[in-house]
Amino acid sequence: MIGSLAALLAFQLAGEILVRLTGLPLPGPVLGMLLLFVALLARGRTPPVFAETTRGLLAYLGLLFVPAGVGIISHLDRVAGEWLGIAVTLLASTALALVATAFTLRYMLRRQGE
């Protein structure tokens, strides 16, 4: 397990360093994810211990967003003042994005299947 954790941190670190060297508009962890993805494909299979550790970490992905979310407390005045506009925009825009993505994908997959 500790080896898996070390590997995740190493890929994150590699991502952070590359982002700073190249000036890519990506956060380090996202580039780290792409690097790990390429490494796993090159290796051909994921070691079982590694799969198990990452599954454990991803099972609680939601928890990891809580500290940033509590930051809403610093913006309560603005959010309270514009709450209706913010709520309508978030709801409409998120729903439209979900539908546009999912149905474009389904349409294209079906067309490809024909």
Binding site: F37, R55, L61
Partner: peptide
């Protein structure tokens, strides 16, 4: 690290 783990 969790974002990196999404590669698996």
């Amino acid at each position: 690290p969790a974002t990196v783990a999404l590669a698996v």
